[in-house]
Amino acid sequence: MEILCLHGDSQDKKILQSELVPLLSRLQSSNQNILFEFVNGPLQYSNSTVDNSPSPEPRSYKFYNAEDVEDIRKAGEWLATKIDRDGPYDGVLAVSQGAAVVSSFLLYRQWYEHELPPAFKFAIFISGSIPLKVLKDLGVPVSNEAENVVAEAKLQRDRALGPLPAHTSKARRAVYNSDDCFGLNLNRIPLELKIRIPTVHVWGENDPLFPASVQLTGLCDPYIRKIQIHKGSHEIPRDGEGLSELVSLIDWCIQRGTWPGQTQL
């Protein structure tokens, strides 16, 4: 079994691999057949501000520069090429910007290439999101409220602040209310534009961007998804309790995604 791992914005595969060492070692101890492939995003840039520096800063990578439809679709084309060339992969584990690419890719594929099988049997989204511009490009009705929530969340992040109290107070209702998932009416979105493979969604209760993770969660089949809310922020849980819970959820996701009956749904 092989799982593709995609990092966040301005990181690289080595950083993600080091952050996931405790998690991966636990997963592989119970299933030695699991392999993880880490990949750098297609866009490379240097953090160095000095040209021709004798000691340049380590290179960082991203999957797109701007969160617009054209750039995100190009990232999706890169991912499709990666799967065709080096796959197939059983599952995907994606963090932050990597998760935005994967969720967008899955929805575009389901809508425009519905005759193809799912690209992955399961997905783990850590601090994930679905770009609202992608939903609008696919014809999904996106309210001003949904856009305002994401804009407010990004402003909190840019100010290095925690989540807005208004978002926190609405969190539980947003997860389970199909009429109002932070502004998205999930009942008005067709099944073809919802992710229908088993998923795990992980976010921190102190992450100002968590409403975007809730929106992505709402677009996944509620009967084959699991949620973990940890004590941290925009990060991978690494404490003992949080790590044990995440291992259990990923084990469930792998088993559910590879269940023979799942491919017939």
Rank of each mutant, 00 (worst) to 15 (best):
R238H: 13
G240T: 09
V69L: 12
V175M: 13
L20C: 04
F120K: 04
V102H: 10
K154L: 15
E147F: 02
L106Y: 03
P237T: 00
R59Q: 10
D71I: 00
I197H: 07
G76R: 03
E67W: 05
R59C: 08
G240E: 12
A123R: 09
S96M: 06
S143H: 00
W203Q: 02
D207F: 05
L265H: 12
F36K: 01
L27M: 10
A160C: 07
L193I: 14
I195G: 07
S127K: 04
L216D: 10
Y223R: 15
I72M: 08
I72G: 04
G91I: 07
Q228K: 08
N187P: 01
E205C: 12
Y45W: 10
D221A: 06
N206F: 04
F210S: 03
D71M: 06
N185M: 04
N206I: 00
N40T: 05
E241S: 07
F38H: 02
N177R: 13
E147M: 11
S143I: 01
K136H: 11
Y176Q: 04
F182D: 03
T217S: 09
E245K: 15
Q156P: 00
D137V: 00
L24I: 15
V92H: 08
W203D: 01
V134F: 00
T199W: 13
R159A: 07
N206G: 04
E241H: 09
E245R: 15
T168H: 02
A100T: 06
F120S: 05
V21S: 03
N177T: 10
R173Q: 13
Y223G: 09
I195H: 08
E147T: 08
A119F: 06
Q11G: 06
V214G: 06
H230I: 06
I15K: 12
D179L: 14
C181D: 04
L16G: 00
N65F: 12
R159D: 06
V175W: 10
E77V: 01
V202Y: 11
D137C: 00
I72V: 15
V214L: 09
L35W: 06
A119D: 11
Y64C: 11
D251V: 01
L155T: 13
I236N: 03
L4G: 05
D12M: 02
G41D: 04
S103V: 02
I254P: 05
A212S: 15
I83K: 14
E235W: 10
D84R: 14
R256T: 13
A80G: 12
W111T: 12
Q228I: 13
P163H: 12
V39A: 09
Q264L: 15
S129E: 09
E57F: 10
K170S: 14
Q228V: 08
L132D: 03
Y176V: 09
K136E: 15
E192V: 09
S18K: 13
I3V: 14
L191G: 01
